[in-house]
Design a protein around this nucleic acid. Structure first.
Lengths: 126, 126
DNA sequence: CCGAATCCACTTGGATACTG
DNA sequence: CAGTATCCAAGTGGATTCGG
């Protein structure tokens, strides 16, 4: 993905389609709110309002938008209980858990490099 | 990171600071251009113009902006050769390679789930 | 060649109000 | 409670120009 140079040969056409699709998916998902949502859901089952309470600073609108996007891509499952008042619960799907694992890796990386990054920033800002 | 509930106890203060810093860094870095840049640099050394040519669709401005950001956070190194015309080369730092590994993981995940995602989208859009 | 700065069209996201 | 729609303020990103 990403670095290939296309020659225009016929068998390249499929690769290119897969590639640009991958890139599109990547762009969908590689945003901070999506990551945060996936991390926070984890293996729990959370209601809309619980999610909003746990994700500091997210607005109602952003949360719905990202949940829809994640649902559309099959990363979270949305379960509606037909009660009054309504109760809607979100969980990660199996592919969602896979993605979560990679995000976990990134969180770990962040934690391990906090010091280095802070130092680098101070140097840069001077 | 992210999910902890703070009690307000003194020892929590440091955790909270580290946490919000981690989140800030995360927000900096978790954007599609940054990911793409890191992936494309890989273990190569690339000039500004080479980068722009390889990253389809990125504008001059976005590229500079993200390169500055990555440099500030110590993920890429910027080397200026004092020639005429100027020659500026970018490489990943050691922490940059660490982050790259996690992004690689995410790319792999995307490739493995292209089919599932496409199917899920079709279902959703109907 | 690289990058900073300006301009401005366009998108984004927050606040609010309204429905089932 | 969950979600949609609207409005509008603020931010973003592209094109262009100028400078080192």
């Amino acid at each position: 993905m990403v670095t290939k140079q296309y020659t225009g040969s016929p068998e390249d056409a499929d690769l290119m389609r897969a590639d640009s699709l991958a890139r599109e998916i990547f762009s969908d998902v590689a945003n901070k709110w999506a990551f945060l949502i996936i991390e926070i859901v984890g293996d729990r089952t959370l209601r809309f309002s619980e999610l909003r309470d746990e994700i500091e600073g997210i607005s109602h609108k952003m949360l719905t938008q990202n949940l829809r996007m994640l649902e559309r891509n099959g990363l979270v499952e949305r379960k509606v209980h037909p009660t009054v008042p309504p109760r809607v619960e979100y969980t990660l799907t199996e592919p969602g858990h896979g993605l979560r694992a990679t995000i976990d890796g990134m969180c770990g990386w962040t934690r391990r490099h906090l010091g280095h990054i802070e130092a680098s920033r101070r140097r840069f800002d001077a």
